[in-house]
Simulated assay, not measured.
Amino acid sequence: MRKHVIHAALAIGFGLAVIPQMASACSIVAPDDWGPADSRRAARVAVGTATAIIDGEVIRPFIHGKQNAIVRAARVLKGPRKVEFEVGERSSCDRALDRVGERFRMILTGGPAVYYLPDGGSEAVYEDELLGSYREVVWPYTRGTEP
């Protein structure tokens, strides 16, 4: 009996230590019943809560612990009309822009000094529809150079 109590206590302790870390993971998994209405809603939230939305190109890479990325905006769809945006990384939930020449539409948060690019799923078609600007036409993705 005592052995079972010890095993149960260890299992509970392990669960309390591991579950909060698992809950804070950044990966987003859509439920099986995720449909177009959910995707449209997610796009509205992303566009609505963004501080800036730009078609940008990385001109200075992010280097962990040393420097934030600098992105040149070819087009500003929302936010301050700036030519360059400094983009950092707060945690593993943000995307580090470490490829010079990488070009794509960026939905940024934070600012005004340092912006962040949340690393999550994108509802690109619906975001573009809301913005009235289609990234595949006006600013197709370019990979950039490896760090």
Rank of each mutant, 00 (worst) to 15 (best):
M1C: 06
M1I: 04
M1K: 08
R2W: 06
R2E: 13
R2L: 07
K3P: 00
H4E: 13
H4I: 08
H7K: 14
A9E: 06
A9V: 12
A11V: 11
A11S: 12
I12M: 10
I12C: 08
I12D: 01
G13F: 07
F14H: 00
G15W: 05
I19V: 15
P20R: 10
P20N: 10
M22D: 05
M22R: 10
M22G: 02
A23E: 15
S24F: 09
A25I: 10
S27M: 12
I28V: 15
I28A: 12
A30S: 13
A30T: 13
D33F: 08
D33E: 12
W34Q: 02
P36V: 07
D38Y: 00
S39G: 07
R41I: 00
R41M: 10
R41E: 13
R44Q: 14
R44M: 09
A46R: 12
V47C: 05
G48C: 04
G48L: 04
A50F: 07
A50S: 15
T51R: 13
A52S: 14
I53F: 05
I53S: 01
I54L: 08
E57S: 08
I59D: 04
R60H: 03
G65K: 11
G65F: 03
K66I: 09
K66Q: 11
A69E: 09
I70G: 01
I70M: 11
V71R: 06
V71M: 11
V71P: 06
R72T: 09
R72D: 03
R72W: 06
A73C: 13
A73L: 12
A73N: 12
A73M: 13
R75C: 04
L77H: 04
L77G: 01
L77Q: 02
L77K: 01
K78S: 02
P80W: 00
R81V: 08
K82A: 11
V83Q: 11
F85L: 07
E86S: 14
E86G: 02
E86I: 13
G88K: 13
E89D: 03
R90H: 13
S91W: 07
C93V: 04
C93L: 04
R95D: 03
A96W: 01
R99L: 02
R99I: 03
R99G: 01
G101D: 03
E102Q: 15
E102R: 14
R103E: 13
R105E: 07
M106H: 11
L108T: 02
G111C: 05
G111A: 05
A113E: 14
A113C: 00
V114I: 15
Y115G: 03
Y115L: 06
Y115N: 08
Y115F: 15
G120H: 07
G120N: 08
G120W: 00
S122N: 05
E123P: 00
A124P: 00
A124H: 02
V125K: 11
V125T: 06
V125D: 05
V125Q: 08
Y126W: 11
E127K: 03
E129A: 14
L130N: 01
G132S: 09
G132N: 09
Y134V: 11
Y134E: 09
R135E: 14
R135L: 08
E136R: 15
W139N: 15
W139H: 15
P140L: 06
P140D: 06
Y141V: 08
G144I: 05
P147I: 07
